[in-house]
Amino acid sequence: EDRTLRVATSVPQHHYLTRAIQTFADRVNERTDGEISFEVYPAQSLVTDQQMDQAVANGTVDIGIASASILAGTIPAFNIFAVPFYFDTREKLDHSVTRGNPIRTTLDEEIEKKGLHAAFWIPYGSIAMVTRDKPVHVPDDMKGMKIRTFGSTVSEFVEAVGAAPVVTSGGEQFLALQRGIVDGGLTGWSSVTDRRLYEVSKYVVATDHMYETHFALMSSGVWDSLSPETQKIFQEVGEEMESELMDEIFTVNDKAKAELSEKMDVIELTDAEKTQWKEATRSVAEHFYESGDDVSKTVFEEAEKVQ
């Protein structure tokens, strides 16, 4: 079966995510002796991140790189990764998001129920907070600040410490910081370097309070149309990539921190400070559990077990 699959990402060509799916594509292509090839459309040239799941569902693309934050609109249980400090160590991640763990299995099933299939999960790393000109160490420092956020649970985190969440489109994020429309913003470590946020903010706080994951998302239709041999290759390559990338994100984050420490103040939280943050944002976890649907409750209970 000779097939070409269209792949779309919403980040630039040399971004970590595009490189990850490109590596996946190259390996699958090699192991299928060229039978399966890929056309990669990076930088939302074909699909924006907001539309990614829909574009996969209606067949505009065969594989789309979507984030848990976007998918959480449809499957609220994905907000579990935004519950503060529940997935902040490698150990916790190894017991939750890697294959075979109950959280992973439950969420994969939810994806299948929506007519989609995650070829593999792309580990992305933790979320940091940049601030324009105010060093933040403890939750009290956040009082009255305006913070750019994404997603509903992320906003709750900001509100829990007395700051105000501001919705700004990705393109205006740099400007909003530069001009002071917001005082800070939550974002991935790689975005701080890639979007040159260090030019417009003095500090980056290693809150590392939430985990962000992405998916190589396919529709069930496309997945089912692949031969069993090809499916097996997808699974094998996906599995090896997941474990390689999980190692990589920790080095990538460390590298980003080292690089950034020359351009801005990197603020690491002490254990005592971290405890204060956990205390201050406990309500987010409670709210997630209480207002969550059955699946959210299930994954939350599982997440409690790995704390």
Partner: peptide, 17 residues
Amino acid sequence: IPIAGVPEEFLASFNSF
């Protein structure tokens, strides 16, 4: 390519702050 992408493009164009 499925032309389901066409209404999608229109929506993405209009749904813009």
